[in-house]
Amino acid sequence: MKAKTADKIATGFIYAISGIVALILFAMLSFILVRGVPHLSWHFLTSPARAFEAGGGVGVQLFNSFYLLILAMVISFPIALGAAIYLNEYAKKNYFTAIVRTAIEILSSLPSVVVGLFGFLLFVVQFKLGFSILSGAIALTLFNLPLLTRSIETSLAQIPDLQREAGSALGLSRWETVLHVILPAAVPSIVTGVVLSAGRVFGEAAALIYTAGQSAPALNFGDWNPFNISSPLNPMRPAETLAVHIWKINSEGIMPDVNAVSAGASAVLIIVVLLFNFSARKLGMKLYKKLTSS
């Protein structure tokens, strides 16, 4: 009887705690959305920001966020994939791999503002890349690499060893097994991990303030030559992202509708991140069905 009562109390306690967590999340989300959604309009999403007068949008920042995200992913994904394949499929347990793993763990716990300052000193100043999309993308890569490596490594580790044995027993080399058996089987969960990390990268501000910069020069969306300074694709131009924009206008914004812009931008950010999170699982499941023809 006593054990049963204790069990009931413990269960109730655990339920209450998880309820509180869910409630806090829900309250935060609805606060941001309720405040921000009324300000959203096609105009807000597409027009450039205005520094001194009302009626500005976040179009350039939104574009910058996506462009930086894509560049950061293009740089970090191949590296993370290679590192994860090495760690999960090839690495023996020895001193060297222990160091690699520890390094990845430490890298993943670095505060992003430190990553940003490091990127500022090395890429912006030392390598003279300036406040640019490229500097920002490299900083985001440093920020993203350890987490993405971890997530891909976990995806690979979920594939049972039976599959590796089956591969080698069929006369496949280890690389062929990785390429033709392990990776296809792991693709859905790798994709889920990539999209989830994309959500995190999308909302990152601290690593970008000193690397991609805090200014968003007006862009000419008719000019797609990446060598022109006003071209959206130019990787050497400074590019304030949505998250940095929110931080900036809240600390020093002087436009009359600063609160509305801030609320609207926050809502856009949250909605995009939510979309990433919801689509990650769906996409993974769809890919799995397609690849395994089940």
């Binding site: 089956a166 027993a169 006369g171 496949l172 296809p184 089987a185 690849l291 089940s294």
Partner: peptide, 28 residues
Amino acid sequence: VDLRKQIGMVFQQPNPFPFSIYENVIFG
């Protein structure tokens, strides 16, 4: 790699790859 093509192995647990039956059989 050549050796295991000549000496095939079947395991305790059935271990088909997560592909179609057709792709499994012609995998090698």
